[in-house]
């Protein structure tokens, strides 16, 4: 099934809006490529509109675990050093981040 140049299902501004929501910096080339790729994929998923879905309940989850409850107690050993060892920047026992409040 060769993919033809899909009709734009999402505008370039639409791509930029979604990228902002997803916290992704994109360059102009990536924006254009994503507009093309997302348009192709969205065109493909349009086939779901063929189906009559009124009265069909959505499935969010399968399996039989239900919603088990447990006591809210700490079970893990303290491991602050091991956890902070993965931090890109730390100061003492804190994660270090750029200034957020002026």
């Amino acid at each position: 099934m060769p993919l033809r140049m899909a009709e734009a299902k999402i505008s370039l501004d639409g791509v930029r809006h979604v990228a902002r929501l997803a916290r992704l910096a994109l360059d102009a080339q990536e924006e254009a490529k994503l507009q093309h790729d997302l348009s192709s994929i969205l065109e493909y998923v349009e086939k779901l509109t063929e189906l009559e879905l009124s009265g069909v309940e959505p499935t969010a989850q399968v399996g039989d675990a239900g919603t088990p409850m447990r006591d809210d107690v700490v079970t893990n050993e303290p491991a602050a050093d091991a956890v902070l060892a993965n931090a890109p920047a730390r100061e003492g026992f804190w994660f270090k981040v750029p200034k957020i409040i002026e």
Binding site: V45, L48, L51, L53, V56, P58, T59
Partner: peptide
């Protein structure tokens, strides 16, 4: 919509 099709 996808979740409804998942049911089917």
């Amino acid at each position: 919509k996808a979740q409804r099709v998942r049911t089917l």
